[in-house]
């Protein structure tokens, strides 16, 4: 017997996606952010921020790296063995956006240390996702709720 209590079912409303799409995107993000770290390029970070923003605000179907995956990569691969919910990777795009914006503020505001730290953290999260299928932002979500809830 399997029972679902409380609001678990309400949180499962997102659509199902091929999990290799977000990982492909995370790999590209890792490379882009590594170049940003090495060059301190604000415009490249701005492009990545727009990519994050499209994924977080419009949805994964509008995320440019995801579009590349579906058009160019997916047709060459076997169908996915299992599907994944879209809510976690979409949430991760939002976390990435926040760090990219902080990084831009650092680079453009002349506080390059802030830029370096923010981009390094976003890079770490993207790399964990690409290499280990691990969503750092998703885990921070529960810790945040636990820390800041007064219940």
């Amino acid at each position: 017997m399997s029972t679902t209590t409380n609001s678990v079912s309400a949180t499962r409303s997102g659509s199902l996606i091929d999990p290799r799409g977000p990982r492909f995107g995370a790999a590209i993000t890792t490379v882009v952010l590594a170049v940003v770290l090495l060059t301190s390029s604000s415009w490249l970070l701005a492009v990545q921020a727009i990519v994050f923003g499209l994924g977080a605000i419009v949805g994964l179907s509008a995320q440019p790296y995801g579009v590349v995956y579906r058009r160019l990569v997916r047709p060459r691969l076997a169908p996915p063995r299992e599907l994944e919910e879209s809510a976690p990777p979409r949430f991760a795009q939002g976390v990435g956006l926040a760090f990219a914006v902080a990084g831009l503020a650092g680079y453009l505001g002349g506080v390059s240390t802030l830029g370096t730290i923010a981009v390094a953290l976003a890079l770490g999260a993207a790399f964990l996702n690409a290499a280990f299928n691990f969503c750092l932002g998703c885990e921070m979500y529960l810790l945040g709720r636990r820390l800041f809830s007064r219940q």
């Binding site: 399997s2 029972t3 209590t5 409380n6 609001s7 678990v8 529960l142 709720r145 636990r146 219940q151």
Partner: peptide, 21 residues
């Protein structure tokens, strides 16, 4: 049986059992 609990709605429970992830 299998019982699934929405952790973010059961803060007291996850603090008591030290659920971090």
């Amino acid at each position: 049986t299998h019982v699934e609990i929405a952790a973010e709605d059961q803060i007291e429970l996850i603090r008591r059992f030290d659920v971090r992830r």
